[in-house]
């Protein structure tokens, strides 16, 4: 009796295992070719679509095929301030540039890996792009009319929100692509060694730059909730971080584009230091990101009238987080500035 029970249990276990394997085997697998095709179609559409809100241009010293158009709202009656959302344009350009540059590496690669996350991220990007295009078309049709500023800004509000979601998806997709090429394709595996090549080094730098712009995105999109804050004040935190982002584009990104075929020659002797500063930046990034998650610059400007003592009443570490965020982005001693300055001199002739 007892042995019968054992045989039955073993038989059931075998049946279950076999059916699981069969189901798993029959499931539609995402292949590298499929994902490449999806990326290719998506990026081509964003670039070439006649109704695309993107055009070829330069924003914050970054040349791109993806300069987001019409990112300015209209001055209200009696208001002298017209808000420019150039930080949206910069972030969109950086994220899409990265995808455009590196998705071709997905074609014909033989890496056995799970492509499902890459696939879902590009699908999500497509969805967000459709909404962005739709909202841009609505906004664009109104733009040249004499519509009242409040109606105009209402349409802009929807367009801006769709851009916000689109850029978040762009960074998610770019980060997944970067992570795949770094961890699975191991594109940067020879960086720092004698067999380092230009392609690997270029990817290593680009991936680090993407992370740096990811930090800027966290500041602008999460801590500032996407809004330009206190633009009337030349020394507002928003303005200072915005300038830091522009400076990074100027001294690093634009130089990098110009020297991309000569990176190994320019940096080979300094690779130990390059790796050190990027790993230093990596380790300090966690603190800066924690501070940005804990400190809302949006609330600081809008609810506490930029008074840190008022903010401290609800968040006793507010001043600590505030300092940490600014120390990361702003000033000659900030981590970002130090990295930019070093790369500027290294990438020079």
């Amino acid at each position: 009796m007892k042995s019968k029970k054992i045989i039955l249990s073993v038989f059931l276990a075998l049946v279950l295992s076999a059916s699981s394997f069969m189901l798993f085997g029959c499931a539609k697998k995402t292949s590298s070719a499929n994902v490449y095709k999806l990326f290719d179609e998506s990026i081509t559409a964003i670039k070439e679509d006649v109704d695309s809100p993107f055009t070829k241009g330069t924003i914050n010293y970054i040349e791109t095929n993806f300069d987001l158009q019409d990112m300015t709202n209209k001055a209200g009656n009696g208001s002298t301030v017209q808000l420019s959302y150039n930080h949206y344009r910069t972030l969109a350009a950086v994220g899409l540039n990265f995808i455009e540059k590196y998705y071709p590496l997905l074609e014909d690669n033989n890496i056995k890996a799970d492509y499902s996350k890459l696939e879902s991220s590009i699908k999500d990007l497509n969805k967000k792009y459709d909404t962005l295009k739709e909202e841009h078309e609505k906004f664009n049709s109104l733009k040249d009319t004499n519509a009242d500023y409040s109606i105009y800004n209402g349409f802009f509000y929807n367009y801006k929100n769709s851009a916000y979601s689109f850029i978040n998806s762009t960074f998610d997709c770019a980060n997944r692509l970067g992570k795949f090429l770094n961890n699975e394709a191991k594109l940067a595996k020879n960086v720092g060694s004698e067999s380092m090549d230009n392609e690997g080094l270029e990817f290593y730098l680009d991936y680090n730059y993407l992370n740096i712009y990811g930090d800027f995105k966290l500041f602008f999109f999460d801590s500032c909730e996407g809004e330009p804050l206190d633009l009337t004040k030349s020394s507002s935190e928003f303005t200072l971080v915005n300038l830091s982002m522009a400076n990074f584009g100027n001294v690093v990104m634009s130089k990098m584009s110009a020297k991309k075929d000569d990176l190994v020659n320019l940096l080979a002797d300094e690779m130990e230091y390059v790796i050190t500063i990027f790993s230093s930046l990596d380790s300090t990034r966690g603190d800066a990101r924690k501070a940005m998650n804990k400190f809302s610059f949006y609330n600081f400007a809008n609810s506490y009238d930029n008074d840190i003592n008022a903010y401290k009443k609800v968040n006793s570490f507010a001043n600590v987080y505030y300092d940490r965020v600014l120390n990361y982005f702003v000033g000659e001693n900030s981590a970002i500035y130090r990295v930019a300055t070093f790369l500027q001199s290294s990438l020079a002739d």
């Binding site: 050190t276 500063i277 230093s280 120390n327 000033g331 001693n333 900030s334 981590a335 130090r338 070093f342």
Partner: peptide
């Protein structure tokens, strides 16, 4: 500290 030896050590 941001301008001192602790943070500039690696740079």
């Amino acid at each position: 500290v941001n301008s001192g030896d602790i943070t500039s050590y690696y740079f």
